[in-house]
Simulated assay, not measured.
Amino acid sequence: MRLRAVVARNLRRLRQAGGLTQEELADRAGINRNYVGMLEREENSATVDMLEKLAEVLGIDPVEFLASDDQKPS
């Protein structure tokens, strides 16, 4: 699986686990809601700085965005 797809899948999963809509996540991160959607649909790839900002809002380690399915804790 491409890294962009892994990040997109994890972003959606982590956002939903945190009970946030795309709009809420974007607002808290100070970015455009459309950008969050584009990341989740793999239309854009996030910079390291953006992953750090999103991780801070979600309360996670940014490395979690890069974990493939077989690396996630059970």
Score class of each variant (00 low, 15 high):
Asp27Trp: 07
Gly37Ala: 08
Pro73Val: 11
Ser45Ala: 00
Gly30Ser: 00
Val7Cys: 08
Asp27Cys: 02
Ala67Met: 12
Ala17Met: 13
Asn10Met: 06
Asp70Arg: 03
Lys53Phe: 01
Gly30Cys: 00
Leu25Cys: 04
Ala29Ile: 12
Met38Asp: 09
Lys53Trp: 05
Ile31Phe: 13
Met1Lys: 07
Glu56Ala: 04
Gln16Thr: 11
Leu20Asn: 00
Arg12Tyr: 11
Gln22Tyr: 11
Glu52Val: 05
Ser45Asp: 02
Met50Cys: 04
Val6Asn: 08
Gln71Glu: 15
Arg9Glu: 15
Glu42Thr: 09
Leu3Lys: 09
Ile60Tyr: 02
Gln22Trp: 11
Gln22Gly: 12
Met38Ser: 05
Arg13Pro: 07
Gly59Trp: 04
Arg28Val: 12
Gln16Arg: 10
Arg15Asn: 07
Arg4Asp: 13
Arg13Gln: 09
Leu25Ser: 07
Ser45Lys: 01
Leu54Pro: 12
Arg41Lys: 15
Val7Leu: 14
Glu64Leu: 04
Thr47Gly: 04
Leu66Phe: 14
Arg41Tyr: 14
Arg9Thr: 15
Arg12Lys: 14
Ala67Leu: 09
Met1Val: 10
Leu39Gln: 08
Val48His: 07
Pro73His: 09
Gln71Ile: 10
Leu3Trp: 07
Gly18Asn: 06
Leu11Cys: 12
Gly30Gln: 00
Arg41Ile: 14
Arg12Gly: 07
Met38His: 14
Thr47Ala: 02
Ala26Trp: 06
Glu56Val: 01
Met38Phe: 11
Leu20Trp: 01
Val48Cys: 07
Glu52Asp: 09
Glu42Ile: 03
Thr21Met: 02
Glu24Tyr: 13
Glu40Met: 05
Leu3Ile: 05
Gln16Ala: 06
Arg9Gln: 15
Asp70Trp: 02
Glu40Lys: 05
Ser45Thr: 01
Ala17Gln: 15
Asn34Gly: 09
Asn10Val: 03
Asn32Leu: 03
Asp61His: 05
Arg33Met: 12
Arg15Glu: 10
Ala29Ser: 13
Asp61Ala: 05
Phe65Asn: 12
Arg9Ser: 14
Glu42Asn: 04
